[in-house]
């Protein structure tokens, strides 16, 4: 099957903001870099909040209420999405 995604395989294609009941959301669409073979991602990404380019010391936690991460194969016509929320 496809190999795990690595350096340069994925790019941010779209960031969609949303807000509900005091919580802000950003849904990030990740697509294959043009010409890249399909590859897989698994689980939650590591997430760090930066302030002026440096870690801001903000704790981040996975939230299973937004869906459980499965292994996904990213294809040229099939992107992967990550939703970030903060309140």
């Amino acid at each position: 099957g496809p190999a795990p995604c690595g350096h340069g395989d994925l790019v941010v294609a779209l960031v969609e903001p949303d807000e509900a009941r005091g919580t802000a959301y950003r849904t990030v669409t990740l697509r294959l870099t043009r010409g890249t073979e399909p590859c897989t991602v698994r689980g939650y990404p590591e997430t760090i909040v930066l302030a002026k380019g440096r870690p801001a010391g903000v704790a981040t936690v996975p939230d299973q209420t937004l869906g459980r991460p499965e292994q996904l194969t990213v294809l040229p016509d099939r992107s992967a999405k990550v939703t970030l929320a903060w309140s």
Binding site: G6, D9, V12, R26, P45, E46, T47, V49, L50
Partner: peptide, 20 residues
């Protein structure tokens, strides 16, 4: 000028500017 950095894989960091 806050941002969020996601590691989708150990060698695949993606930076999202314009947070906060």
């Amino acid at each position: 000028n806050d941002a969020v950095r996601l590691w989708v894989a150990p060698d695949l960091p993606l930076e999202l500017p314009g947070f906060g």
